[in-house]
Nucleic acid binder design. Sequence first.
DNA 1: CTGAAAGCGCTAACAT
DNA 2: ATGTTAGCGCTTTCAG
Lengths: 339, 339
Amino acid sequence: MTTSAVQTPRGPVTRKDVARYAGVSTAVVSYVVNGGPKNVAPATEAKVRDAIRILGYRPNAAARALKLGSSETVGVIVPDNTNPFFSQLAHAVEDAAAELGYGMVLTNSGGSLAKERQNIRNLAARQVDGVFLASCVFDPDLTDLEASEIPSVLLNNAGSPPGFTSVGVDLEAGARAAVEHLIGHGHTNIGLAIGTNTGNQLDGREVGWLRTLRDAGLPDGPMLHSPFTRPGGYEVGKRFLAMANRPTAIFASNDMQAIGILRALHEAGLNVPDDMAVVSFDGSLDSEYSWPALTTVAQPVEAMAEAAVRALVGEGRGEALQHSILPTELIVRQSCGCK
Amino acid sequence: MTTSAVQTPRGPVTRKDVARYAGVSTAVVSYVVNGGPKNVAPATEAKVRDAIRILGYRPNAAARALKLGSSETVGVIVPDNTNPFFSQLAHAVEDAAAELGYGMVLTNSGGSLAKERQNIRNLAARQVDGVFLASCVFDPDLTDLEASEIPSVLLNNAGSPPGFTSVGVDLEAGARAAVEHLIGHGHTNIGLAIGTNTGNQLDGREVGWLRTLRDAGLPDGPMLHSPFTRPGGYEVGKRFLAMANRPTAIFASNDMQAIGILRALHEAGLNVPDDMAVVSFDGSLDSEYSWPALTTVAQPVEAMAEAAVRALVGEGRGEALQHSILPTELIVRQSCGCK
DNA sequence: CTGAAAGCGCTAACAT
DNA sequence: ATGTTAGCGCTTTCAG
């Protein structure tokens, strides 16, 4: 026992314990833990580090957050993290945020406005430094976000709601690429499976689909609404099949719907793409391993996450509101008719 | 202007502002916000609530956490939230935790031990009240978890590591159900696609597969290792196909592998289940919408999450360490040969 | 039923 | 280079 009798403190170890053990002041402990704002002599630093290690000291993030007014945490609200597109997005956000030392609190809204608002409030109470809201409804009630005055960016939102930073994808251009590709395969009757959005804004994918058809001098194809889910797609697939003037190709507005449609097609004994071609939207991991593999309009998930994080807590913070519209990329696989 | 001149304070609104505005002490504000520990006269309470509403007051969770020593947050570490099984698990944990007023910080370990440890430390620093670790390696290095002395439960771990609460599934029994079902279809050469686990414990699914085969007087089938991913399954599928003594059925140890295997089979022009039957493990959403739909051994994700949350921060907290082994359920669809 | 005040662990001026 | 100390916003005991 060469050091003074400092037994492991009973409760959690605080910076005070470390200071006492190392024979320095608490400020010095802070300096070495945070690497500043003051320098400490190498010898002192070594002593402190030893003390930290020996005592098993871990800084208290709550105290730090209280003092700094920042929890170094961001909140993410997605409709359903079980949807591969959103789980990939959440993953990308986590990575991008972690890069900057931020943690991520993830919540699901289930696509319900009420839950979304509740989550926003909850996140705000937790003092997150910002929230990413991926609302599946096109006209989310942004009142709470606005009211809570916590920095936020809208993810996956093609509209450009005033007063908000948003990052999204050019839905219309993406839809155009998909439909043009289908037209290139000789299809003239192309259906659209679209979501059940509750807002009053038109979905860019619908606009793109329709315009492309008309620009090509083709008749408007049939359009069916269903939730952005596998079962939703399954339902819609069966309804397409039952149509008198059944389309020969379907543009599905997300991968989940497409996968449901594929099931309906298979069950009916149809061959994809020969009897019915399918192109979808999102480019989630699932699209690559469906049968046949889906030709899909991929969203740049990582880029979206990075842009969003950058705008919220990175260098972009504080800059003027921006609406980033990122480009999509058509990934050609087999469901469209390509070999 | 009937009330004294109290303008909206410049910075964030604190409990002090509310107290002043309502003409009460800060303690009273606390009492009404928390519903205790003291009673407040109805009239006073009304005044306080008004002040809260008008001022837009939101309690500071960091301060609360500092005072209380609890952040009312749990951490979750999964290998990859992009894997539907884990995204469902995370979702279920979020719900179960939210039920108790806890938030969830989600992190991905990428299946790397280093990242897992880093995440544990990070979570610990964030003062989470507990962490759920779903390690994909069977012998996770638990040193950090142990050292950090933060309550934790191992998810998805069939082993019963001493000193830890764990909740998992009876892998061996699940595998047995799968293999017996395949045997019931008349198969005698049943392969196993299993993960690349780095630990030294045997995977219960391997044990169950082998024992069931032997109990039935059947020869050991071929076994192939690959990552628990779609590409991993795809690889393994091709290797099964190239075998001299190719099995007529495959038991895949998770849905992702099975989906990859399905792709390999389709590409080779085989019919599933006629040319090759497949049964998998997990029962994730993906298994229902593959083609053909996968017969799979479903894990009770919600029950697992509830048991885990209960043990960590619910009524079960503080009880003796437990190892909950939950039962699986064979969901029969078409990939096994059933109609 | 209400209020005053101590302090949770930390950061960062401001001393020394 | 290091130490002292005033709070960050909240909860809660103890007094009124």
